[in-house]
Design a protein around this nucleic acid. Structure first.
Length: 1071
RNA sequence: GCUCGGAUGGUGGAACUGGUAGACACGCAGGACUUAAAAUCCUGUGCCCUCAACAGGCGUGCGGGUUCGAUUCCCGCUCCGAGUACCA
């Protein structure tokens, strides 16, 4: 029988499914090998032709590894939560679960007919409660953890509470919010439960925080940075704006350094690692504090050291403070008597301006403010907590006493104050570098990677959004600054990015002092400084930074040369690190390295800065205002979040009437009725983002049915990590980074064993569309006619190009009959042909329905079979290379499989093999392919092995090989690529279980030759071939070559100067 | 701008550590079989000169270099693709 691919493929697919042929073994002595594909989102369009490419490669690899004796885990599942199903639900009212289910069925059918060796018993779906239970469970672990910098890992929150109990915040080194409080164990003990929870939330690895988010009004949800491309949503291309919202976040920044270092330990494509490095964005530099210089000169200079107030309202505050001092409440007067003149051992001031407030009492060097409540001064009537918060921000701790307390027992109040002051260190801890540190001086903090250029600073620039801008702007500059900020806001993200040439900015009217030389320099705002990076403030060094140079030139600010190596700084900035410093005070004459070291030390010693590492990576937003996602297992009590109990998992997604946000703007979950925790507390209404379910799924495959753990300890210990992960590079900074983050976290908590989840990563190239065009003739009035001109002749006519369905074009030749039925108006189409054919134009574009360039794998399988599709997809080119989809060569692969089939059959298509001893040539052909295929697969060069199969089959056909022994081995070697035909032939050969056969052992003896046709080249140019025995050494070979008549002819009597002989490779004669 | 890829016949691509450039396939041309077509099989196919063969010349984006020898290594450039972006 001829090659009947349809019957053969159906038969073996059924056989594999019924026998669970590819079920990974549980108890085995075999070494493990875990091959993972990026699981698909089951979209309504069905499997895209790009998907099978990676799946086929991983399937070949898995089947090959099984033949090599490995216990292979090769699972598949669905990332089934996501936006499209929800969009569809909004439009149709259809529950997303139903759409998802239907789509999965299509995917499964399509996957099955390609003949993948997946272990379907381990299938996962992220939208199944049995799966998302564990996604929620991991969320809970994150909520219950903090990142301890001392041990450099995540720990249970109880270890933090323990520290608070025993030593307060003193020896806590954590990755946490910036506004954490500093307190003593006694303070902690006095915190209410609410206050404790509020404080702990600032440390948890998943936390609730007001943050600026990418809000997409059209989608009604928040998007992660990597889901926004150039100001538009990646999905749907809707505009995205910045908005402040309370949001769940993941403290991925805690892992920045480990995520960066881990990249050096894994075998991933360099571009992906590079993208992750850029995303993490580590910069090594220094933070420097520039103290604010008082703007008022009349006598204020003397007060400078104690200047702690907002410079703009200093005058007002000072006057008010003076008035307050002469109009004290009885309690204040009473207390002042006990505190004044260092009676407590600490210097305390009363009615002292701080920021835009006046503190009742303050000890500046301890950073402590004492407030007596119930006062009747105007400025004290503000909400106390607001005031405390603002003062905390400035770096001050506030303790409060009521009037009654003070009047009742002033001595005990004074004692308490003294005790608190005694306990406090002189400065606030160095890690809280906020305004107010260092005794209360106001300053602007900048981050720089070139602290060595600090003597070249001639101005400071703040982002227009910087917190201090309003306070720093003087009355005279008020209008200019306000105008500039308004202008910046109007500019869209896109404009701001496109317009990097125009220099713009505004002077605030205020000044800072450069700590290294005491020089006074102006504070500007400009939109080239970004609020979201570093501190939102930069020091302007025009001689060393081109942007600063442009800014200085534009606004006539001084440009100071700071290195003897800097050149042409009147034309452009020179950022050289060479040379010795000049005009640079105490670093004059030193080199870049020396200067940096000296300055780091100097900054630290003088309390005005320190060496600092900055990361660009922000914490990941972890909430979407969407329905079709994992509910966050949290409820709110007194507006603080609490976890539900572990045994209450999974928190099921509630049924709702429609899938839109509520009228009041709440997320869709707000529509759920009777959906409260313990019939009392509101649940969190946002759901988890798309990446939640995919950030740990490879562990679920290890033990997919487990109901008591996300996977058993034993399964995790055996399978460890993914040995080979194949997928698209579009996940480089999303999925692949989040997965590494969760993996490290789970490892810190001891749930998993490996630091990195994916040992080797391969990116399959993107499959682009390949569109075909016809050229419609245009008449004099510019209207399209019904006549079409072939591609080669289109230049002679006036035509317009039209997309034509690629499925009615073969090798760029249009099928005229099918074209006439393609659209009704083409029924009477006429053609101007070349060589009797209509040739279509070709262009590579994105694959889309509107461009008629979508090729459905189902059609190819119907026409050629899965084995042909599998081999053809591999034959297209290197796996990692992007390429346009093109079916032009598929015939060749199909012919190859028929030819292969014919090797096992006689002229009458009857199965026929012979049991004789293989000839030398047959062995040679076989062992060549055995070696070639194993080498190719190990280096993921699947396209070249397809070529080699063709060569092998051509050779064996020429040799008329019918030898059972040879053909049997050939079947095994080909089976990972074309499993169906090989299974059939394997069983025709009388064998069973091809998938557990042993890959044949390569024997180099069969490839040994005793002669080699040496290429003889003269001066490097190949002239002829000469067959010589491989046993000849250099002298013998040289003699034989020079003795050859033909060689002598080429030499034309010249004497060779030198002869290069490389055994088995080449002979080169130099004349 | 920066970072990372890439550029080889009419097309997809091969040449793995510097050693016969163009494997394998598509397409094209010619032939066999056939009444004919399809299918199948055979032959040829980088370009140029030449009736043709022999022989020769030129050829891996461009310009240099290293080397007996470069698609491969080095320097400089052009173009294409991807990512990223005023990151201090």
């Amino acid at each position: 029988m001829d090659y009947q691919f349809r019957e053969i493929e159906a038969k073996w697919q059924k056989y594999w499914a019924e026998n669970q042929t590819f079920k990974a073994e549980l108890n085995t002595e075999k070494p493990k090998y875990y091959v993972l594909d990026m699981f698909p989102y089951p979209s309504g369009a069905g499997l895209h032709v790009g998907h099978p490419l990676g799946y086929i490669a991983s399937d070949i690899f898995s089947r090959y590894k099984r033949l090599k004796g490995f216990n292979v885990l090769h699972p598949m599942g669905y990332d089934s939560f996501g936006l499209p199903a929800e969009q569809y639900a909004i439009q149709t009212g259809q529950h997303p679960a139903i759409t998802t289910e239907a789509n999965i069925a299509t995917y499964r059918r399509q996957l099955d007919q390609i003949g993948f060796s997946f272990d379907w018993s381990r299938e996962v779906r992220t939208s199944e409660p049995g799966y998302y239970k564990w996604t929620q469970w991991i969320f809970m672990q994150l909520f219950n953890s903090w990142y301890n910098l001392a041990t450099d890992k995540a720990e249970d929150i109880s270890t933090l509470i323990e520290k608070f109990n025993t030593s307060g915040t003193a020896d806590v080194k954590a990755v946490c919010d910036e506004d954490v409080a500093t307190f003593l164990p006694s303070d902690w003990a006095n915190f209410t439960e609410e206050e404790k929870q509020k404080e702990l939330l600032k440390y948890r690895l998943t936390y609730l925080k007001e943050s600026t988010v990418n809000w997409c009004p059209a989608l009604g949800t928040v998007l992660a940075n990597d889901e926004v491309k150039e100001g538009f949503s990646e999905r749907g291309g809707h505009p995205v704006e910045q908005k402040k919202m309370m949001q769940w976040s993941m403290r991925i920044s805690a892992y920045a350094e480990r995520l960066l270092q881990g990249l050096n330990t894994i075998d991933w494509p360099e571009p992906v690692k590079e993208m992750q490095r850029n995303w993490i964005g580590k910069s090594v530099g220094a933070s420097v504090r520039f103290s604010l210089s008082p703007t008022l000169s009349k006598g204020e200079g003397a007060n400078y050291a104690y200047q702690t107030a907002d410079p703009l309202i200093w005058e007002v505050l000072k006057t008010n403070a003076r008035a307050n001092r002469s109009d004290q409440t009885p309690a204040e007067t009473e207390l002042w008597q006990s505190l004044r003149a260092s009676k407590t051992g600490h210097k305390i001031r009363r009615q002292h301006p701080i920021g835009s407030y006046i503190a009742d009492f303050i000890c500046i060097n301890k950073g402590l403010i004492i407030e007596v409540d119930g006062g009747y001064h105007n400025e004290n009537q503000q909400n106390d907590s607001l005031r405390t918060e603002a003062l905390n921000k400035l770096g001050f701790e506030v303790i409060r006493f009521t009037n009654e307390e003070v009047l009742a027992d002033v001595t005990s109040v004074a004692q308490k104050i003294k005790h608190t002051l005694d306990q406090r260190s002189d400065k606030l801890p160095a890690n809280s570098l906020s305004l107010g540190e260092g005794g209360g001086e106001a300053f602007i903090e900048v981050f720089t990677t070139r602290v060595d250029t600090i003597f070249g600073v001639s101005f400071i620039v703040l982002a227009p959004e910087h917190d201090l801008v309003a306070q720093l702007t003087t009355a005279a500059q008020q209008q200019e600054v306000a105008d500039y900020i308004a202008k910046t806001k109007k500019k869209s993200e896109l404009d701001r990015m496109a317009d990097t040439k125009t220099v713009s900015g505004a002077f605030t009217g205020s000044f800072v002092i450069n700590p290294v030389n005491g020089e006074k320099m102006p504070i500007w705002i400009a939109d080239y400084v970004l609020a979201g990076y570093g501190t939102g403030a930069v020091m302007g060094v025009p001689s060393g930074d081109q942007r600063d140079w442009l800014f200085a030139t534009h606004f006539n600010l001084p440009i100071v040369q700071i290195s003897d190596a800097q050149q042409n700084i009147d034309v452009e900035a020179d950022s050289t690190k060479e040379g010795k410093y000049i005009n640079s005070g105490f670093i004059n004459g030193s080199t870049y390295k020396e200067a940096t070291t000296i300055l780091h030390q100097w900054l630290e010693d003088n309390g005005v800065g320190k060496a600092k590492i900055n990361y660009r990576m922000r914490d990941a937003i972890f909430g979407r205002q969407r329905y079709w996602g994992e509910p966050i297992p949290v409820y709110f009590k007194d507006s603080l979040p609490y976890l539900i109990k572990e045994e209450e998992l999974p928190l099921m997604l509630p049924e709702i009437d429609k899938y839109l946000p509520t009228e009041s703007g709440e997320p869709p979950l707000g529509r759920a009725t009777d959906w409260t925790y313990e019939n009392e507390y509101e649940y969190e209404l946002s759901t988890m983002p798309g990446w939640a379910g995919s950030s740990w799924y490879w562990y679920r495959y290890m033990d997919a049915q487990n109901s008591s753990d996300f996977a058993s300890k034993e399964a995790i210990a055996y399978w460890k990590d993914v040995d080979l992960y194949i997928g698209g590079s579009e996940h480089a900074t999303g999925h692949l980074l989040y997965s590494r983050f969760w993996n490290k976290f789970l490892k810190d908590l001891g749930y998993v064993n490996e630091e990195e989840p994916f040992k080797k990563l391969i990116n399959q190239g993107m499959i682009q569309g390949r569109s075909n065009f016809v050229y419609r003739l245009i008449d004099e009035e510019g209207r399209g006619t019904n006549t079409f001109v072939s591609y080669g002749l289109r230049k002679d006519y006036k035509t317009s190009a039209l997309h034509v369905d690629v499925n009615i074009v073969e090798n760029e030749v249009l099928n005229l009959a099918k074209f006439k039925t393609f659209r009704p108006e083409f029924a009477n189409a006429e053609f101007i042909l070349e060589n009797g054919k209509y040739i279509c134009g070709v262009e590579v574009e994105k694959m889309s329905k509107s461009k008629f360039n979508v090729v459905n794998p189902d059609v190819l399988i119907e026409n050629y079979g899965a084995d042909t599709l599998r081999m053809y997809e591999m034959f297209l080119g290197p796996l990692e290379q992007s390429k346009p989809w093109n079916t032009n060569g598929i015939e060749g692969v199909f012919k190859f499989l028929r030819k292969f089939w014919r090797l096992f059959h006689n002229e009458n298509w009857a199965f026929h093999v012979e049991d004789n001893i293989p000839t030398k040539a047959e062995f040679k052909a076989l062992h060549k392919i055995i070696k070639k295929v194993q080498d190719d697969i190990e280096r993921f060069s699947f396209n070249t092995s397809v070529s080699s199969f063709m060569i092998a089959v051509n050779e064996l056909t020429d040799l008329k090989c019918k030898n059972r022994q040879v053909l049997e081995d050939l079947v095994i070697v080909l089976s990972p690529y074309a499993p169906h035909i090989c299974e059939e032939l394997w069983s025709l050969l009388g064998n069973k279980n091809l998938s557990t056969a042993k890959y044949p052992t390569f024997n180099p003896a069969y490839l040994e030759e005793n002669e080699f046709a040496y290429p003889i080249s003269i001066n490097g140019k190949m002239k002829m071939n000469l067959s010589l025995s491989l046993s000849l050494d250099e002298a013998q070979a040289t003699e034989a070559v020079l003795g050859n008549i033909q060689v002598q002819g080429y030499l034309e009597g010249k004497t060779p100067k030198k002869i290069i002989f490389v055994k088995g490779k080449i002979v080169n004669i130099v004349v």
